[in-house]
């Protein structure tokens, strides 16, 4: 039994050694117990929604499974050989890389410009920031349906504007037709898909770069000013090198989003015209789900895997370097 006189109230406080016995109330204070409990939902989620489907996809890709016959019979690499020999697959593979790389080159240039503008002080900056972010907040499917109308073969408002400006129609720059037929001509359809990807991934890249710009100390920028560096020298020798780690993150995100996306192509062109905008993700869906050949669909989808592994490895390296600095 111990006792103490409370300095505030003058009461006598007593306690016995039993008061310190653990009674289970502090069980969760133990991080070795709390950690796994907190982690469990994420682990279950990832195993259930990523791990199982992925294992299934691998199993399908090496078997002859179809929607009609779901028994998994081993066929070795036959699916991969079949898929590889298909012209549409070859085109989809090229398009996947083309869309991802070209769109991200454009995005990183535009994002740099936008981030620089948005980091400056001007009236209405908040509204402009909000507007720039809007595409990111719109559900992809809805946004692409909006684009579908914007690029419509007959009613496209872009065409209407071009006609008003005297750029479209007989005897004008864009030619005799009354419509551009954005989604019906192969190269314009590809351009349209690219444009939507740029429009969709630009906001995130801009926000990431804005954060990166804000992280460059004002003193360093001031020092460069005093040291006599012109705008372009500061840009290429100070800003870009200091932004490269975070730019890498922005580019990798963009590549993953565009490389794995099928919504844009599926809604906008359904891969057409004549498979000119087909990408791996959409071709896997058309083959595996719409044409019921699950095995081929899985094999096509697995071609996404090597690139995503590389991207993931680079991401992890960047993250690690960011931790050690």
């Amino acid at each position: 039994m111990s006792a103490l006189t409370s300095p505030s109230t003058g009461e006598t406080l007593t306690w016995s050694d039993d008061d310190f016995e653990p009674d289970g109330r502090y069980l969760l204070d133990n991080s070795r117990l709390l950690g796994p409990i907190m982690l469990m939902p994420a682990v279950i989620y990832i195993i259930g929604l990523v791990g199982v489907p992925f294992a299934l996809a691998i199993a399908y890709a090496f078997s002859d499974v179809t929607v009609g016959d779901q028994s998994i019979d081993w066929v070795g690499l036959r699916n991969f050989r079949d898929v590889w020999g298909n012209d549409t697959f070859q085109r989809a593979l090229r398009n996947s890389f083309m869309f991802a790389i070209v769109s991200q080159v454009i995005v990183i240039i535009l994002a740099n410009m936008l981030a620089m503008v948005l980091s400056a002080n001007f009236h209405g900056k908040r509204i402009v920031r909000f507007l720039v972010l809007l595409p990111w907040t719109t559900p992809i499917a809805l946004a692409v349906i909006g684009w579908l109308w914007t690029l419509d073969n007959v009613y496209s408002p872009i065409d209407a504007a071009l006609r008003e400006l005297g750029l479209l129609g007989p005897g004008t720059m864009f030619g005799p037709g009354k419509n551009m037929l954005w989604l019906a001509k192969p190269d314009l359809a590809q351009l349209s898909v690219l444009t939507v990807h740029v429009w969709r991934t630009l906001p995130l890249a801009t926000v990431i770069l804005l954060a990166g710009l804000a992280a460059i100390p004002q003193d360093v920028k001031d020092a460069a000013d005093v040291d006599g560096a012109s705008f372009w020298r500061q840009f290429f020798y100070i800003r870009v090198p200091l932004l490269i780690p975070i730019m890498t993150v922005a580019i990798l995100y963009g590549i993953v989003f565009t490389f794995t996306d099928m919504t844009v192509v599926y809604i906008l062109t359904r891969g057409g015209p004549i498979d000119n905008t087909q990408v791996l993700a959409s071709w896997a869906f058309f083959t595996g789900v719409e044409a019921s050949n699950l095995a081929h669909g899985a094999a096509i989808a697995l071609f996404l895997f090597p690139l995503l592994v590389v991207v993931a490895l680079i991401m992890l390296r960047v993250a690690k370097r960011a931790e050690t600095v």
């Binding site: 360093v220 001031d222 020092a223 000013d225 006599g228 560096a229 012109s230 100070i238 200091l242």
Partner: peptide
Amino acid sequence: LPPRARRIAMVFQSYALYPH
């Protein structure tokens, strides 16, 4: 005049070295 036209040199509290 901008800083670069003033023939001045400045040392900052943080030193402001270019980290890369």
